[in-house]
Simulated scan of single mutants.
Amino acid sequence: MNLAHIDNPAVSGTAASRVSRLARLVRLGVMACLLAAGGAEALAHQQERGRRDDSAQMRERYQMQAQAQDARFEQRAQEMREEQRRAIEAQRESMGSERRGGRMTPDERRDLRRQIRESGADVYPNAQRR
């Protein structure tokens, strides 16, 4: 009987070959873990960089909006100041033409008394008699 050509698992599965297979399996497992950890770290770094870019873009957009709003606010404030200045000038001009010297003419005094009497009659229509 010739046993040299028979593949017998009991003979071929020696302890040394089992250890080498186990060592190879452990090495492959360690390599897989290292690759997975490296990939996860790279992904986290990429996400962090993306968040920084997003925050920079948001900050830039906010600054642009604030500048545009400041420009509109400044323009409106300038318009309001100009409008107020014109109103004050118009009021000064109208006061200057109405009040010449501080004294009223006899006709103006008479008109004023008449207006006061008329307004008093409107406020107190039935004056009490004593």
Rank of each mutant, 00 (worst) to 15 (best):
V30C: 02
M31A: 13
Q57A: 15
D53I: 12
R51P: 00
G50Y: 09
Y62W: 07
R86P: 00
G29M: 12
S20N: 05
R86M: 12
S12V: 13
R21P: 00
V26E: 12
A36C: 03
E41N: 12
Q67V: 10
L22F: 01
A44W: 03
Q78R: 14
A90E: 15
R27I: 05
Y62C: 02
Q46H: 12
Q46I: 04
A44M: 06
L25W: 08
Q78M: 10
M80H: 08
R72N: 11
M58R: 15
E83Y: 12
A66F: 11
L22E: 02
R72G: 04
H5E: 10
R24F: 08
R85S: 11
E41M: 13
E74K: 08
R18G: 01
R52P: 00
L34N: 05
G39I: 00
R61E: 08
Y62A: 11
R52K: 08
Q91W: 08
R81S: 15
E83P: 00
C33E: 15
Q67F: 09
V26C: 02
S17T: 13
V30P: 00
Q69H: 13
G50L: 15
A15T: 07
Q47V: 03
E83T: 02
A42W: 07
R24Q: 11
S12E: 07
M31S: 10
M64F: 06
R21I: 10
M58P: 01
E74P: 01
R59G: 06
S94E: 14
E48T: 06
R18N: 04
E89Y: 02
R85N: 09
G96A: 14
I6T: 04
Q63A: 15
R85M: 14
Q63E: 15
A10R: 05
A90S: 10
R92M: 14
R81G: 01
V19R: 08
A87C: 01
G50I: 07
H45F: 05
E89Q: 15
M31T: 05
A77I: 01
E93V: 03
Q46C: 06
E74S: 14
G39R: 01
R72T: 07
Q46S: 14
A87W: 11
S12D: 05
E74R: 15
A87N: 05
A56N: 15
Q84Y: 10
R24H: 07
N8M: 00
